[in-house]
Nucleic acid binder design. Sequence first.
DNA 1: CTTCTCACA
DNA 2: TGTGAGCA
Length: 133
Amino acid sequence: MKEKELRRSLSVFPIGTVMKLTDLTARQIRYYEEQELIQPQRNDGNRRMYSLNDIDVLLEIKDYLAEGINMAGIKHIYEMQEQAKQKKQADMKRPVTDEDVRRIFHDELLQQGRLNNTDEQGPSTLFHTHKLL
DNA sequence: CTTCTCACA
DNA sequence: TGTGAGCA
């Protein structure tokens, strides 16, 4: 069950293929990389090469965008996933404190608030992001 | 032909 | 985000 992850991590698709698979423009794909949502590798010719995992993330981003979440919100979602990943180990040994609960609750309120604060643009939001949180 | 970076009548 | 320029 490890070879599979390794294969999904292999960067073998040029941006053109990713565009067709995700329906995103090259501009958007490169922009999301700039936002550190994906980290495609480069081949000898400086061409970006994407992995299946990169494509999965891109597809997820497209869904979040469709649900009205802006880039700031999406970045926070992935930031939290990373935090949860690193914190998981430590939390395994340490019992959950009330401060942990407060932090989690605080982050959720932050994201929900972002739906109203039009710090970016397209405010056709105010939808139901609750099911994601 | 495809992708890259940079810039904006 | 789109789009076009000028390269590789």
